[in-house]
Every structure is written in C-alpha cells, then in structure tokens.
Simulated assay, not measured.
Amino acid sequence: MASTEVQNDSDDGMDEFMDKFKTQRYKKAFSEKNWEEEFSKVPMFMKTAPEEIDPQKYPELACLQSILHDEDRPPEEQAKSLKDEGNAFFKEKNYKKAVVSYTAALKKKCGDLELNAVLLTNRAASHFHLGNMRSALNDAAAAKKVKPDHLKASIRGAQCCIELRNFSDALQWCDEGLKAHPADNKLRELRAAADKHKRAAERDARKAKAKEKKLYGEKEALLAAIKDRGIKLLQPVRPRPQGSDSEDEDERSSAAMAQLSLDGLSSQEVTGAQVFLDEQGSMHWPVLLLYPEHQQSDFISAFCETNCFIDHLAVMFGEELPPWDTDRKYQPQNLQLYFEDEEKETLYQVDPEMPLLKILQRKRFFVKAGSPSFIVLVRGSMFLKQFLSGKKVHGL
C-alpha cells in the first residue's frame, strides 16, 4: 500500500512537471533570433576564436583552454597543444596571437627536437607575415641549429634574406638547403630569384659608383677652373675629432682638404642650383640678392660670369616692379650693391656695370655655400644711411 502511494506521488509529480514544461519555455534555450550567435559560442561550431576568452561568456572554451594549459601534463604535450593553438591563429591570419602561442610552447623547453624546430619555423612564418624580417630570420637560424636539414627553416631563411636584400646570404641558405633536399623546387626557385636580384644589385651598384666617380671628376674639374680664376670658396667649419693627433691629421690632410673644397661648391640645399661650366667654358653662378629694407630676396639661378649686374637689374626692376616696392624706389639706376666680408665685418660696394667675374676675383670676396650673395639698397634712402651707420664700408 505504501509503495503504491509513493508511486502515485511520483507519477503525480512528473505529470505536474510535464504540464509545466509544456506551458513554460526553457529560459536558456536558443531562440529563433539568437541561435546563430549562441552556436558561435560553442567551441565545436566556432568559425574564429575570440580575441579575449571571457569565462562567463565562453565557459566551454575557457574550460578547454584550461585543459590545454594544464601544467600537470608533460612539457611535450603542453607544447604540442600550444602549437595547435598557434596553427589555428595562423590559419585565421592572426599572426600576433600565433607568435604568442608558439613562444609559449617554446618556453616549455620540451626535449622533442623535431617539435621545437617546427615551433621555430612556424613562429618565423608568423613574423614574416607581420613584416618582422629580422625576427623571422633569427627563428629560421635557430630552427636550423636545432635541426640542420629542416626544409622549412632553409626556405624561410632564404625568403627573409631576399626581403632584407641580403642576396648573398639568401644564396647560401638555398645552397645549404639543397644539399639536404636537392630536388626541392621551392629552394630552386628562391635560389634563382636571389641570384637574379644579386646580379641586378651589383649592376646598380656599379652604375651608381661610375656615376659618383663621374660627378666627382666634374666637380674636381669645376674646382680647378674656379681656382684658375682666383675665386675663393668659404669652406664650412668642421670640428676636429676628439683624440686625433697631428700625424693622423697629416695622413688625412690631402683627402680632407679636397673634400672641403668640394663642399664649398655645395649650394643645392640653400638655393636649389649649383655653379657650372657651359660648353664654351663660361662659368655660371647661382647668385642671391638680399633686400634688407623689406626682408625680401631674389635668386638668379645661372648668372654668367661675363654678365654685369646692371643687365639683370634692368630686367628685374624694369617695367614691372616687385609688389613689395610700394614706393617704387627700386629703379635700376637708383640701386647700390654691396658684398659683406664677415671676417672683417666690412661691406664692399660693387660696381653694377662690372662683370661678375671681376667682382668674384676681388681680394676680400669669398663664395659661401657655393652661392655668391649681395646686398641691394636704394641710393640716398634713409634706410641705407641707417643700415651703413656704424659699419666699415669700402666704396668703389
């Protein structure tokens, strides 16, 4: 009788539960709206791994991760699990996380040399895709050290060297790899590419060297022409290296003085032009004109040494005067030109009807930064009197 009552109670309870189950939906069930989102949280159905594994949001994945990183397992098993994790990230092109996984696996320091070599080459591949060529090359070298005949290490090392334009090293990687794998097509392709790039780089280097030599010869010829004309170049000041003695200076004096002289011709950084000789042997200078009254300047890119200032001034201040000359004072006949001797702090007046060469040959004229410069003032102006006041001035 008692058992029949218990059975009836149990049956009544089940009936009640089933009735309730029919009328109320399961709270944690997937709905028509969110079933795809919920499926994506289940490790078996995930298409991509989440950036961060939140145990509350992804409890199953967090559980699996804890199993993967179970420190109680042998180092080889842990390293292999981390390798698989890195491979998954690599397939998703998440190379940064792949590097982290492979690095964690290598830190397990397992005794499986083959596995360690694979981890290093896989990490090298991740670094390669991230553009970290040096790190990739270091990993390839480390893999080769662990396993000298490792094919992927040779391939990755050669690829890195090509990207770094170390074509000779790339050929060496290929040749050493082909000793162990003579039939590998990838290594053969890389070797052919490295050899082609090496030949092209050597050809470009020869051309660049020949061009540099030609330019240097042209500069030396130009320098000789300048010296023959008696024109003086103001050399840039260079500090003397610490610890150098007189003997060292004597050994380097010839080359150093030659380079300093050539540096004195360098005006391209300042004006964008440079002195040159034309086919008739006439020298053309980039000349800078300064107007301190208006803080303005003009630039004549190729002032022939046989021309006079008045020729250029007639063009520059002819019918159309510059917009900053509101008083229209800068007429060619009203202008006075000077050059400055910075060493003696003296101004020397220039005859505008004298050829440029004669001016450059004056005793106290020095060409600075490869570009002769002159100060232009208005004759009889108040600014001229103020500007020349207190200065040493040598007239015509």
Rank of each mutant, 00 (worst) to 15 (best):
residue 106 L to H: 06
residue 106 L to W: 02
residue 106 L to Q: 08
residue 107 K to C: 05
residue 108 K to E: 12
residue 108 K to W: 02
residue 109 K to Y: 01
residue 109 K to T: 08
residue 110 C to G: 03
residue 110 C to W: 00
residue 110 C to V: 02
residue 111 G to Y: 00
residue 111 G to L: 01
residue 111 G to E: 11
residue 112 D to H: 08
residue 112 D to C: 05
residue 113 L to D: 14
residue 113 L to Y: 04
residue 113 L to V: 14
residue 113 L to E: 12
residue 114 E to N: 13
residue 114 E to D: 14
residue 115 L to W: 04
residue 115 L to S: 02
residue 115 L to A: 01
residue 115 L to R: 02
residue 116 N to C: 12
residue 116 N to Y: 00
residue 116 N to G: 04
residue 117 A to F: 01
residue 117 A to E: 05
residue 117 A to M: 06
residue 118 V to F: 05
residue 119 L to K: 08
residue 121 T to Q: 02
residue 121 T to A: 09
residue 121 T to L: 06
residue 122 N to M: 09
residue 122 N to S: 14
residue 122 N to Q: 11
residue 123 R to D: 13
residue 124 A to M: 06
residue 124 A to N: 07
residue 124 A to F: 03
residue 125 A to D: 10
residue 127 H to Y: 12
residue 128 F to T: 01
residue 128 F to A: 04
residue 128 F to D: 01
residue 128 F to I: 01
residue 128 F to Y: 15
residue 129 H to V: 10
residue 129 H to P: 02
residue 129 H to K: 15
residue 130 L to S: 08
residue 130 L to Y: 04
residue 131 G to M: 13
residue 131 G to P: 12
residue 131 G to I: 14
residue 131 G to H: 15
residue 131 G to C: 13
residue 133 M to E: 01
residue 133 M to H: 07
residue 133 M to K: 03
residue 133 M to N: 04
residue 134 R to P: 00
residue 135 S to V: 03
residue 136 A to H: 08
residue 137 L to Q: 10
residue 137 L to C: 07
residue 138 N to K: 10
residue 138 N to L: 10
residue 139 D to K: 03
residue 139 D to N: 12
residue 139 D to P: 06
residue 139 D to Q: 08
residue 140 A to I: 04
residue 140 A to E: 00
residue 141 A to L: 11
residue 141 A to S: 13
residue 142 A to R: 09
residue 142 A to C: 06
residue 143 A to V: 09
residue 143 A to N: 08
residue 145 K to A: 14
residue 145 K to Y: 08
residue 145 K to C: 11
residue 145 K to L: 15
residue 146 V to Q: 15
residue 146 V to L: 14
residue 147 K to I: 06
residue 147 K to W: 01
residue 147 K to Y: 09
residue 148 P to S: 03
residue 149 D to M: 02
residue 149 D to N: 15
residue 149 D to G: 05
residue 149 D to F: 05
residue 149 D to H: 12
residue 150 H to L: 11
residue 151 L to S: 04
residue 151 L to I: 06
residue 152 K to Y: 00
residue 152 K to I: 00
